[in-house]
Amino acid sequence: MLKENKLMAIKQLQKECENADGIQLKLNWEMLREREGRQMDFSYEKNGQLIACLSLYGFGSTVEVCGMVIPEERRKGHFTRLWQQALVTIEQYGFQTILLNAPSTSITAKEWLSKQPYTYAFSEYQMRWSERPIEASDEILLRVAKPSDANLEVKLDVLAFGMDEEDARSHLERIKERQDEQFLMIEADNRTVGKVRINRTEGEAWIYGFAILPEFQGRGYGRKVLRNIVKSEHDAGNQICLEVEAKNNRALTLYESVGFIKIQGQDYYKKNRV
Rank of each mutant, 00 (worst) to 15 (best):
C17N: 13
L27H: 08
L99K: 10
F183W: 02
G218C: 07
Y44Q: 10
K271L: 13
S137H: 10
R273T: 15
L2K: 11
S43G: 07
K146C: 04
R250V: 09
K155C: 00
G222L: 11
R200G: 09
E131N: 12
V196L: 14
P117F: 00
K176C: 01
I134E: 04
R250K: 15
T108E: 13
E72G: 06
R223S: 09
A160I: 03
N47E: 15
H78C: 09
I107T: 07
K15Y: 05
E45W: 12
L27I: 15
G22A: 04
E4S: 10
T253L: 10
E4R: 10
N5Y: 04
D267P: 12
V144T: 15
A236V: 06
S148F: 02
W112H: 05
Y57I: 07
D157E: 10
N249W: 00
V63R: 01
S257I: 04
A145G: 10
N101D: 07
E139F: 08
G77D: 01
M31F: 11
Y120G: 07
E139I: 01
N28H: 13
D138T: 12
K146N: 06
Q179Y: 00
E131Y: 10
I51F: 00
A9H: 02
C241P: 02
V88Q: 15
P133T: 09
Q84R: 15
C66N: 13
Q85R: 13
I51Q: 09
S106A: 12
N190I: 00
D138C: 04
E18I: 05
L100C: 15
E73Y: 13
I70T: 08
N228A: 05
G60P: 13
Y221C: 02
P214V: 05
Q12C: 01
E30D: 13
I186V: 15
V69K: 04
F59R: 11
E165A: 14
K271A: 11
T80P: 04
M1C: 01
G203I: 03
P133D: 10
E34V: 00
L7W: 02
M1P: 11
D167A: 08
E139Y: 08
R174W: 03
R132G: 00
Q84M: 13
I70E: 12
V154Q: 06
Q84S: 12
Q182N: 06
Q92F: 04
R174E: 14
L25P: 05
V244S: 07
C17S: 14
D167Q: 10
K6Q: 14
E139M: 13
Y208E: 12
A20Y: 15
N19G: 00
L172H: 06
E215T: 08
Q14G: 00
A188H: 08
E187S: 11
G259V: 09
P147S: 01
D164V: 13
K110N: 05
P214Q: 05
K155R: 09
Q24V: 08
N47D: 15
K195D: 00
R75M: 08
E245G: 07
N5W: 00
R74L: 03
G77T: 07
Y118D: 03
S61Q: 13
N199L: 08
A160R: 02
R219H: 12
Q266H: 14
F59I: 07
L113G: 04
